[in-house]
Write a protein that binds this DNA or RNA. Structure first.
Lengths: 238, 238
DNA sequence: CGGCGCCTTGAATAATATCAACGATAGTGG
DNA sequence: CCACTATCGTTGATATTATTCAAGGCGCCG
């Protein structure tokens, strides 16, 4: 099932082709680190094509992943095949830190992507020995937890329009360009499984917002915000 | 708005009337700790009556709470008053670690309760200086995140019966006695806001499970499992 | 015993899912 | 370069689920 993944060792000496972030110390040239292991030395970089499954639900959780480019979805299945997209991962996001001995989610590539992968036990060791890295990851976890809790509120109490509006706003915030068209890397099915709706409801609701001149849809995967305030009001927050 | 809360300083010398857990070192007599501050010295114990709000959404997040006895709900409101119970907290559970500068949830007492409260910045300091405490809290956070993700799946894709079945099973697991009747500290409204349903749907669905001989309801707040396997099958997991 | 809060149940309604058909778009091979 | 095909997205009609509205019941406490 698992096909080859492009892989290479990252050296702190070699200029990597990926903008790999350094944690627990300044991102500059990297002076000798008396703490011993550091993230750069731990990780290997990989390039993966759209559709690829990088980590599989139920498999031993050996690695922690950091997205470098592209987009991923974190997926969980019910035995009968119903699917939930627990989160979308964009550059800078991590996967696998909170997983137990086996992954409880699959990590799938939405659009051609690259990532860095760290052996989980080595990363844990680093966290134990390096207070700065530890603090960094602790606050990452806090962010993830807060995001999950936001979504709990959304899924338990918001209507379809409110969910879509919240989603569009969130994607606009995560997107680099704040003004122009937002590029959605995921398809309608992914959005539906993320928001707890069906493909049809997602489509209909986006059409509705379009007809109300709140957004524009130049293509299916591009969204232009015409009335951000209105969208925020519709989203139900504040 | 905030009425008096019973409060007293905890001394490591005094035998506390609460079973306050010690983190980052053995729970025995407490030898001098070269790390300096430890959790016992940080915390103050409090007793609170049912209905009391211990932390308010939007207020400065100054404390982290650990439940000692009783039960709490962690609540979030939408501007129009819709309510979501993000989680129930039982003895041993923590609140407030992942909160930002202000609480994004209220913490409300469901049944007469007691808790220990730690100034957040002091706890943070302890986490920075004590690797064992840090590890402990890191794994607590992992557990909370995993639980939140389970609930995301539930809220996005499970039907009313499946949610109720999952909830009953989860409460049975968290409850002390595994065999006899489960005591629910929360009312139907709390369950509804936790599962993203209405009071009526919760009531109807429990009645349905009762009529199918899967559970018994001696009183509204007691549940007896008659057929755990069946309940697990209904819950949709595995 | 009476009142109040909480729970249950029924009937009608609304929201979203499902089923089905059609349309658009992108990738492929002639 | 164009046509074909597969995939994805949109839209409509209908079905289903859960909500809303409404009434009544149960238990607890004064």
């Amino acid at each position: 099932m698992s096909t080859a993944i492009a892989s290479k060792q990252i050296s702190t000496r070699t200029k990597s082709s990926f903008p790999i972030g350094v944690i627990g110390k300044s991102s500059s040239p990297a002076p000798a680190d008396k703490q011993g292991a550091n993230l750069d030395e731990l990780g290997t970089a990989h390039v993966v094509p759209r559709g690829k499954t990088v980590a599989e639900e139920g498999a031993p959780a050996e690695y922690v992943f950091k997205v470098v480019s592209g987009a991923f979805r974190m997926v969980r299945l019910l035995p009968d095949g119903r699917r939930s997209v627990i989160d979308f991962l964009l550059p800078g996001d991590y996967f696998g830190l909170a997983e137990n001995s086996t992954y409880s989610h699959s990590l799938e590539v939405i659009s051609d992507a690259s990532f860095v992968r760290y052996p989980k036990d080595q990363l844990r060791q680093l966290l134990d020995s390096d207070p700065r890295a530890s603090r960094r990851f602790f606050s990452l976890m806090c962010g993830q937890l807060a995001a999950a809790q936001d979504r709990l509120l959304m899924l338990s109490r918001k209507s379809a329009v409110e969910r879509i509006a919240s989603f569009v706003l969130a994607m606009a915030d995560r997107s680099q360009r704040k003004d122009g068209a937002i590029k959605l890397p995921m398809n309608r099915a992914d959005v539906a499984d993320y928001l707890g709706l069906t493909i049809e409801t997602v489509s209909r609701t986006l059409s509705q917002l379009k007809s109300e001149k709140v957004i524009e849809l130049p293509t299916a995967c591009q969204i232009v915000l015409l009335d951000r305030d209105r969208l925020k009001a519709i989203s139900g927050d504040q």
